[in-house]
Amino acid sequence: MSELNLVPIYLADRHHILDRLGVALERTFQTTVRIRKPWFDPEVSFDRSRGQYNSTVLLKLLLDDTADSSGKVLGVVGVDLFAPVFTYVFGEAQLDGRASVVSLHRLRPDVYGLTADDHLLFTRLLKESVHELGHCFGLLHCAEPACVMHASTYVEEIDVKSEWFCRYCQTAVRSTPE
């Protein structure tokens, strides 16, 4: 991967998490990470009736916003996301494409009534970021429970898997042309 663009959206007081995430993703994907401000208005993706932001619309906005870059883009948002027809999504990605987006919102333990835990939040964010970027490399969900590409429909499933690709997915990522 030539470079990875990280775009923060509505992170509020959690910008520091982005720097940590950038370092971790540089290590995982062996690439340079650039943090870029968005030049679009995320409110375009807001659905008033649901009180959530449309991840599919955000993907389009991110793609257009980083058209000058040949690298991949990951939007990191602090608000709740949905994809049409679904109640929520943790993130969304273009399969074998450039853009992906991940939300912190449902990864926060305090959203479920538990004590806030920044360490746990970061671990979950890292896993979901690697997961969505894996889709951009053309990876599908993996049957290996410990692989980061294993499907997670609720947050406890994210905690069970690791932040690493299994060897098959790792090989697939390395052999995917940019």
Binding site: T56, A83, P84, V85, F86, E92, L140
Partner: peptide, 17 residues
């Protein structure tokens, strides 16, 4: 009959292979 529904669901299941 809604495109967004079809698209979302297709993408969802494609990820699962």
């Amino acid at each position: 009959d809604e495109f967004s529904v079809r698209d979302s669901l297709e993408q969802w299941f494609k990820m699962d292979g």
